[in-house]
Simulated scan of single mutants.
Amino acid sequence: MLEYKATWYGREVIPVDRWLPSSKTCSGCGRINTTLALNVRAWTCPGCGVEHDRDINAARNILAAGLAER
């Protein structure tokens, strides 16, 4: 259904790895925070100090992974 809608609106669906740790990876420096629990909605990167909303950070990482696949 997603591919059908994308074609309808002139867009392209680019699949990314299902197991990409998108919400645990810092979109600023790329460090993976392996200790991040599922109930944590906001976190600060221990590497660069950037504060992240978990969902927005994941969206940024998924976008970057999709663009890298092109």
Results as ranks from 00 to 15, higher is better:
Asn57Gly: 03
Arg70Ile: 15
Val13Thr: 08
Val13Met: 10
Thr35Val: 06
Ala64Asp: 08
Trp19Ser: 05
Ala64Ser: 13
Asp53Glu: 03
Asn39Leu: 11
Lys5Ile: 12
Thr44Asp: 10
Trp19Tyr: 12
Leu36Trp: 01
Arg18Ala: 11
Lys24Asn: 04
Trp8Met: 14
Ser22Trp: 11
Tyr9Ser: 02
Asn61His: 08
Trp19Thr: 06
Glu12Cys: 07
Ala58Val: 03
Gly49Thr: 05
Cys26Gln: 03
Lys5Thr: 07
Asn57Ile: 03
Arg54Ala: 04
Ala64Tyr: 11
Asn57Val: 01
Ala42Tyr: 04
Asn33Met: 11
Cys48Glu: 00
Leu67Lys: 08
Thr44Pro: 10
Thr35Glu: 11
Ala42Lys: 12
Arg31Ala: 13
Gly10Asn: 00
Gly28Ser: 12
Arg18Met: 11
Val13Tyr: 08
Ser27Ala: 15
Val50Thr: 15
Tyr9Arg: 08
Pro15Tyr: 09
Trp8Glu: 03
Trp43Ala: 07
Thr35Tyr: 09
Ser27Ile: 14
Ile56Pro: 06
Tyr4Asp: 07
Val16Met: 13
Cys29Arg: 00
Leu67Asn: 15
Asp55Cys: 02
Lys5Phe: 06
Ala6Ile: 09
Cys48Asp: 01
Leu67Glu: 10
Asp53Gly: 03
Pro15Ala: 09
Arg18Gln: 14
Asp53Gln: 09
Leu38Val: 01
Leu38Met: 05
